[in-house]
Design a protein around this nucleic acid. Structure first.
Lengths: 225, 225
DNA sequence: ATATAAATGTGATATGGCTCACATTATTTA
DNA sequence: TAAATAATGTGAGCCATATCACATTTATAT
């Protein structure tokens, strides 16, 4: 399929800094691919040859730990998926999997490098995003290791609501096992906490839809750990 | 004191890509400061106005968590200390403290930005280091949350030996409380594991000097958690 | 050198969350 | 639409590690 980045409405903050001419070049070296929920986008251990940009959808970044898989972060479009793993090592250091139907652009790495060199604003923006995502990684880790389960699950729910869906009501696209992998808890514990939250009237769970009823209390639980 | 970056032998990988002319410019906008063990170099919550570069010594990056301080990583010279916190946010998102007598260069941020723009190789190297440190952050977090204490402390000892001192014998500049803050364990547990390792002949602890006696076993403990 | 504070060692006890076990309910697949 | 598979709910017991309490050693300040 013909690709036209100039007309594409799903631009990263960085790509918004690109000129018409640069976008035209990008169009040539950029391949857009569709992924269904559960499809693997980037696989840990394989050679990384392209920069991946999540144009549409939702994806999880996950690493194989010594005991189980760990979900490191959730990425919402429109963001780059694989900058660290593409630039930091020849081999992918983590996996990325679609958690909703998604569309991903694979950008030739040498073109991407060229754009970084030719357009300082683009470069700046990429740098800033890398810095921010490292800071976020630190903070997530602190929370993950210091809070206890209730607090961590409150965090996850609030983060889905605030950062991803911008709504008190949202579909839970992850299984409880996966939520466990996000917060380092067993599947059973996630289940228990979720039903406890529901019993206490903090959330409603219907099928796979979550609604936050008592946000104030959830924030309190998140804060007190 | 007059600063001459051209002659400075403590250059970052990135700075090694700079031209004589660029280094001369750097000399003007670069301030070198000495820190003693325990001195605060960067303080979480304060405005970040300079890029900090650890010229000599050892420092810890730490964040105030909901319950206690968490040591996020140890930085050995010669590396940048504060790129994410300088570029990622106006306000420092973490603290940096010297854990040994250290020397730090504070580089004017606008000059640093200029160098990124004028020298693509410098820019590339900075980008690569940012990517790598994000990958490392992910991996450290996975280990910290999935392994149990023995494994985590084995990791710390091996990391000091392999990444920092390049020797089986090295001084332990952190208190057991701080080691606890690195691996999310209580001070008491760290003490117990350390004496246990000594009893089992895996390490020797004299005063504040550690010697790794049975590296093979330590690696095994690190691997098996 | 002495007093004071900080760091470490070690036992006893408490507990959060894991594991195991099995039942139940959704979701695929044939 | 049945059969098979995956996801979830829930109790019981266990275990790694935290917490508390106090002794001891080491470092720091006066």
């Amino acid at each position: 399929m013909e690709n036209n980045c100039n007309l594409c409405i799903y631009k990263s903050l960085a790509a918004q800094k690109l000129s018409e001419e640069e976008l035209s070049k990008l169009s040539i070296s950029c391949l857009s691919v569709n992924f269904k929920k559960g499809d693997s986008i980037i696989k840990q251990g394989m050679f990384s040859t392209n920069v991946a940009f999540l144009k549409k959808g939702l994806a999880k970044i996950h690493i194989t730990g010594p005991y189980h898989e760990q979900i490191v972060r959730i990425i919402k479009s429109a963001k780059y998926l694989g900058l660290p793993t593409t630039f930091g090592d020849k081999v992918n250091q983590y996996s990325v999997t679609a958690i909703d139907d998604s569309e991903v652009c694979f950008i030739d790495i040498s073109l991407f490098r060229m754009l970084l060199r030719s357009n300082p604003d683009f470069n700046d923006q990429v740098l800033i995003e890398l810095c921010q995502s490292e800071l976020e990684a630190y903070n997530r880790c602190v929370n993950r290791t210091q809070k206890q389960i209730r607090g961590k699950i409150a965090d996850v729910l609030l983060s889905f609501s605030d950062n991803i869906y911008n709504s008190d009501s949202f579909p839970l696209l992850l299984t409880q096992e996966e939520i466990g992998n996000m917060v380092d808890a067993s599947r059973e514990s996630v289940s228990r906490v979720l039903t406890e939250f529901a019993k206490d009237g903090i959330i409603t769970v219907t099928a796979k839809q979550i609604e936050i009823i008592n946000r104030k209390l959830l924030l309190l639980i998140s804060a007190n750990g």
